[in-house]
Amino acid sequence: MNNQRRNVLKTGSGAALLSVLASAGIIAPGMALAEWNKAAFDAKSMADTLKALGAGAPADSKDVQVTGPDIAENGAVVPVGVTSTLPNVTMVAILIEKNPSALAASFNLPAGTEANVQTRVKMGQTSNVYALVKSDGKFFMANKEIKVTLGGCGG
């Protein structure tokens, strides 16, 4: 544990957050957060992203939902979210298949935090949006196509 923490502290902004959190008393010494998963955020394809997240080939689940509109008027701001009724969800992530890097964000949910997270992402074009959920240590997925009428870089 301690070794791992020292490793984290040596690298980039992970270190910055940790030291801030530590000085703010948010994390107790010895309790390190996972390091920002560069491999997962750098991955281009869905498969590579899932691999980098350690998710392999997740099963589709009806108990996972992608929230979002059918059509987004503007790709610069697309409301998306993940909800799930699966038990013991410890992580959820949002992946946009056609974006330059698929992974938009991942969230770690301590016990007591519901599997219900909403945010807004940029989308360059119409794409499948995937919700990835880790429940009882296993990964599950669902997807929804969101049409974009004007890409996230338009004006």
Partner: peptide
């Protein structure tokens, strides 16, 4: 066909 869907999008944001 999308006027309704866009109205929903606007509501969501």
């Amino acid at each position: 066909q999308s006027t309704d869907a866009i109205a929903k999008y606007r509501e969501m944001i």
